[in-house]
Write a protein that binds this DNA or RNA. Structure first.
Lengths: 253, 253
DNA sequence: ATGCTATCGTACGTTACCGTACTGTGATTG
DNA sequence: CAATCACAGTACGGTAACGTACGATAGCAT
């Protein structure tokens, strides 16, 4: 399913969209900019609805647009030749989608798609390259996001190889909470099983364990966090490292 | 154990070390540079022996030197608070050690140390920053290496979550082969168990499986590849993605 | 209201891997 | 040459997670 443009007031204004006001922006990469830098970026931003399953990046296909998420969450998924796939990272309003363009590549082997629907801005890849060259502040914060995201992926490799499903689930729920501003979000066991790379019914079992400890409450297609602190303890040592890097280099989320 | 400086011809020459000849350089980041760019970099390179266990980067400690490996292999290791650790990537003469400095961070949460001893060059961090600003060609190839390394880490997350030990071992052996120029290299089961995040005796079992199929031959503290092609098939779908990215963006290794 | 489909609950035999631990052996050192 | 030690082989009970599969239920559409 494709995301749709947010309707503009009138057709006549489509050619000259209203400038985005920085104080309304929730995306961290944009809101943290000095206003002079933001003004360089703003004219190229196009507001978009980003429904669940909306594809931001297809594997091995040149990137045409970069996305700044305002609301919702993106899954970055790696796929094996045999069809098995697993989530290697997530981001929401804490990041953006076009990092390979900063690293001298116009594509990536990974899928980026909306796991939790929301909205955001997009920008043409060519404009993005131009704007980054004009704004060192934007360039820096984006490179720092790349560093943090690498850390998150490395941490995912670590827990995939050494943590039980219950801990990995707790970690995922916490990461999701960090990126939405809600203790509750729509997600099915089936999707979680793809993200964690495990059986659907193993997810069900793990959810029941966390529910039994009153850390979360799960209803059909939905998960609600009841006790954030204890959930963090349930994640064990598997949560926190990239989050600390983010705070150190970019700021609080 | 610390690596040692390669002995210079005389003490008198220590202040003015002989300029490195690019045609002798095996590191891909350096050898792929146009000679004008190489000449910018060369004066700052200090040749070093890099013994096994030599530490290139300590977690959460500011990076003082960056390293260009000529021979040998580096393990990048992530650690959990509970002490468990796992390898999230490797590099040798295909890369370098100072990538966080390119991404607006002077440190990283990960350990970088020589897994297979060798030699290389190092450069002071401040000089590195200066040189990168002067050579766009160097800057580009290094950023591309960051992209490829991210891909490798993501692939590690994928296989840690979805492949059996035998396949992961085959992948590791192949990656090692790619970075040394030898079908044979020194490594113990114990080290491999730390790299793969599994029991030492599980490594022994997996090695016996690959040995039984005549893909490798293992002796005390040593592994030899007998049949590279079939080993690649034994790795299943777990090997090849970052390697293809490297060839696409940087060149053959 | 009724049927349909997505989602979830649960079960059972199977397997990969674990923790632990003890034995054997090649290599190095005194 | 003997002693020692790092390294590798092997074993055994235990368990997390698997593949598969079938039933239950909730929400949606007709």
């Amino acid at each position: 399913m494709e995301g749709q443009r947010v309707a503009r007031p009138t057709d006549a204004q489509q050619e000259v969209p209203a400038m985005v006001d920085q104080s309304d922006v929730r995306n961290r990469m944009l809101s943290s900019l000095p206003s002079d830098d933001f003004n360089i970026v703003a004219p190229y931003l196009e507001a978009l609805k980003l429904d669940r399953d909306y594809v931001l990046i297809l594997p091995h296909i040149p990137i045409e647009h970069v996305y700044f998420v305002e609301k919702g969450m993106v899954s970055v998924v790696a796929e094996k030749a045999d069809g098995r796939s697993i989530e290697v990272g997530v981001y929401g309003r804490d990041g953006m989608s076009g990092t390979p363009l900063l690293l001298g590549s116009n594509q990536t082997p990974h899928h980026h798609y909306m796991q939790i629907g929301g909205c955001g801005f997009r920008m043409e890849a060519a404009d993005f390259q131009k704007v980054v060259a004009q704004s060192p502040a934007l360039h820096l914060v984006l490179l720092r996001f790349v560093h943090v995201f690498m850390t998150q992926t490395a941490q995912t490799a670590l827990v995939n190889g050494s943590s039980i499903i219950e801990e990995r689930l707790a970690r995922w729920v916490l990461m999701c909470r960090d990126r939405l501003d809600s203790n509750e979000f729509p997600i099915t066991h089936d999707f979680l099983s793809m993200m964690l790379g495990v059986r659907r019914s193993s997810v069900t079992d793990a959810i029941h364990l966390l529910e039994g400890a009153h850390l979360i409450k799960a209803t059909r297609g939905n998960i609600q966090i009841l006790d954030r602190d204890r959930l963090e303890r349930a994640a064990g040592a598997s949560y926190g490292v990239p989050e600390a890097e983010y705070r150190r280099l970019i700021g609080p989320l």
